[in-house]
């Protein structure tokens, strides 16, 4: 899980200030961060839904 988190955080910085740096449209950094967060939230759900009483 830590590796996955580090990977997500690396993407969080690398793409907006790298590849997507010059894309001045909603389909650039904005869309990336929305999708990035959706993936992060979904993976958290997968992990904590396994918890049991």
């Amino acid at each position: 899980m830590l590796v996955w988190l580090v990977f997500l955080l690396a993407l969080d910085l690398a793409l907006p200030w790298g590849v997507l740096g010059g894309v001045e449209s909603f389909s650039g950094v904005f869309l990336f961060w929305v999708a990035w967060a959706a993936v992060a939230v979904a993976s958290m759900f997968v992990l904590f839904l396994r918890w049991k009483e």
């Binding site: 899980m1 988190l5 997500l8 955080l9 969080d12 907006p16 950094v29 904005f30 961060w33 929305v34 990035w36 967060a37 992060a40 939230v41 958290m44 992990l47 904590f48």
Partner: peptide
């Protein structure tokens, strides 16, 4: 950038796991 900043916070909820 404000979106990334705030969503990075949300991603920090991994720590709550």
């Amino acid at each position: 950038g404000a979106l990334g900043f705030e969503l990075t916070y949300l991603c920090g909820l991994f720590l709550a796991l």
